[in-house]
Design a protein around this nucleic acid. Sequence first.
DNA 1: ATCTTATTGTTGTAATTTACAACAATATCT
DNA 2: AGATATTGTTGTAAATTACAACAATAAGAT
Lengths: 166, 166
Amino acid sequence: MLQQSFTYQLASISEDAIKPAAKMFERRFGLDVQALRVLRLVGDQPGVNFTTLAAQTRFERSATSRILSRLIKAALVRRELDECDARQFRLFITDKGIELRQQADPLSLALEDLILSALAPDERVQFRQTLDKLSDWLARAFVGELTRRYPDAGAVLKSSARSKGR
Amino acid sequence: MLQQSFTYQLASISEDAIKPAAKMFERRFGLDVQALRVLRLVGDQPGVNFTTLAAQTRFERSATSRILSRLIKAALVRRELDECDARQFRLFITDKGIELRQQADPLSLALEDLILSALAPDERVQFRQTLDKLSDWLARAFVGELTRRYPDAGAVLKSSARSKGR
DNA sequence: ATCTTATTGTTGTAATTTACAACAATATCT
DNA sequence: AGATATTGTTGTAAATTACAACAATAAGAT
């Protein structure tokens, strides 16, 4: 086996892990993983507004908006007008949404466990710690360090507000 | 910070790590990371044929074919007809391609080092070992185990020939 | 030999995804 | 009041990805 670049290896792993799981979720719940992710973000933050949500979502606001309207149409999420600001509304998960999560979340956890079953228990703990360290560093310092060393890197730095995933 | 699913976290990390690097490579060498990857695969396996290459590439044969023809047009790769089988040809990196790699590869390594600089030296070693374990297991056993536990997972299992990345 | 079937690599194109930018509605600042 | 900024939605272009047809050749079967 040729030596792999570690970033590529990461991408491969997540792709291999996510793709089959994604299929299951679509079959069982009629939701793609992105929609599920948005559902969870709303569920965990009752009353979020769109802008906050979109910043956590890792895809475009436009995409988030469309996913959200599908969730609302499916009655998994509802929205209320904000009393103070008529431009905003607050998002809430519905009972139906909660019910769906009660089925979906254990399945997600079971799938993750299955993937991590390749590792010894303490290795698993260590691995997750390392991942936290890495994502933290990437979100916080990487781009800055990169442009310091390579001024031509062309840092974009647009949105920010990452590292709040789910 | 909300708790993240580990697969999602992996995807985020690789995306954050790859995107800025990708920009640099495009500016400096006029090659996107995929083309660079193909160039490396060819360089490391002088005389590969297209089918073998495409299996290692993680994208469609059609995409691989187009990338390859760009590399050939740019004179970074050349091809020879196979003596035994007129359908096949054998691929080789050119001197110009080697030269490009001599610039690009150290940069890749430096970038990976930069990313991993967030980790202590022994943590780094451990991390890479864990990644190897994981990708190995995913390539070898995951899909089988998944369909055993969840017969509705809808395993596809089309190509195979993975775990030979670069 | 010839006929059928399989493989190799390329190409056209449909489908999907992603990004961008314009927009109406409302709020805030001067 | 008028100018500027923010919120969320929508239209559409651009890029990506997937699929399937294809010509050229090889291999196997009768």
